[in-house]
């Protein structure tokens, strides 16, 4: 069992390990995997607000991630603006989607968010796939330029690794500040007892929309990073399965904590690779493991070790 003070030490150890990793290992495969895990972490940090903390299941993250990636990719390849400028547009898009999708589904109580976000993800995938003239259809977008930082092009694996690590740490800090603030409290309060939140003078639907919009902005930014990291995107990446993976990261890692999202993102991006020795069976074994985790430790791995979750939430039945 460890407390919040201990977790700070764990973060420090993790950051040092991540900084030192390329120096110790020059296995580019693992470095590539970790780059992807960093991008997923940013998505998970955001998703944690809406799914991990307020308990609303968002199954459309892949759609938002997709819009982030395509916006940045198309802006930089078609209008040749700087990826940084494109990033601003991506943030704006994330914000708009968050509100436009959050408003219809979150002012209602119930499971509407899961359904509308699935629908949204599907709309995005269909449109990207079918608007061939604009998005390149199934062929995707090629030759997306990398980010430039102080005159350096981030085009080598190592530069990308440290760049993504820095961005991830930044978003981790933002997420950490929000989680341990009045906002974190209110998000958790919504999961615990939504009626009581309203009686406290807080509009629960507004708070849910805030949490969802934060998630959307994080996912859109991560999508932008993904486009410039991989240099090539196509619609087959952004499926419902990806959305589900994001939720799995938050859930299995540990909902409501930054550490949980970090662990979840690393597990989901690396575990299937480690199970490759099972050959044809690796995927089903992975799904079964996740299924068991969902049922046995619904609050996630990290929370098993955290002090404050020792008393389990009583299910609210009315």
């Amino acid at each position: 069992m460890f407390s919040r003070k201990h977790t700070r030490k764990i973060y420090a150890v993790l950051i040092i390990a991540a900084l030192a990793f390329p120096l110790i290992s020059n296995n580019t495969y693992y470095i590539t995997m970790l780059c992807l895990a960093f991008i997923y972490m940013i998505v998970a940090f955001g998703l944690n607000f809406i799914t991990g903390m307020t308990g609303q299941v968002n199954l459309g993250t892949a759609g938002i991630f997709c819009i982030g990636a395509y916006t940045s990719a198309l802006l930089t390849t078609k209008t040749f603006i700087s990826p940084w400028l494109a990033l601003l547009v991506v943030i704006l898009f994330g914000f708009v989607i968050g509100i436009a999708l959050g408003y219809p589904s979150l002012r209602l109580k119930g499971v509407y968010l899961s359904l509308t976000t699935i629908a949204f993800g599907e709309i995005v995938r269909q449109l990207v796939n079918n608007m061939t003239d604009f998005t390149g259809g199934a062929h995707g977008v090629r030759a997306i330029p990398p980010y430039c930082l102080f005159g350096f092009e981030l085009n080598t694996k190592l530069r990308l690794y440290y760049f993504l690590l820095a961005v991830t740490i930044m978003f981790g800090l933002i997420a950490y500040r929000i989680i341990y603030s009045k906002w974190g409290r209110v998000f958790t309060a919504i999961r615990d007892n939504i009626d009581a939140v309203d009686t406290c003078g807080i509009s629960s639907s507004k708070v849910k929309i805030i949490a969802f919009t934060l998630a959307a902005v994080f996912a859109a930014i991560a999508g932008g990073l993904y486009a410039h990291y991989s240099g090539y995107i196509n619609p087959s990446t952004f499926t419902l399965n990806l959305s589900v993976s994001f939720v799995v990261m938050v859930m299995v890692g540990g909902s409501g904590t930054v550490l949980g999202s970090v662990l979840g993102a690393v597990l989901v991006s690396i575990l299937p690779e480690m199970l490759r020795f099972l050959g044809n069976y690796y995927q089903i074994v992975f799904y079964i493991l996740v299924f068991i985790c969902t049922i046995l430790i619904p609050n996630g791995i990290v929370n098993v070790f955290l002090e404050r979750q020792k008393t389990k939430a009583l299910p609210e039945k009315n």
Binding site: K182, R185, V186, T188, A189, R191, D192, N193, D195, A196, V197, T199, C200, G201, I202, R308, Q309, T311, A313, L314, E316, N318
Partner: peptide, 20 residues
């Protein structure tokens, strides 16, 4: 039938009460 935020501490419950 009491409606509190059951996973949070007493102090945190009160802070949510004062949020707005």
């Amino acid at each position: 039938n009491i409606k509190l935020f059951s996973t949070m501490t007493v102090e945190e419950n009160l802070k949510v009460g004062g949020h707005s």
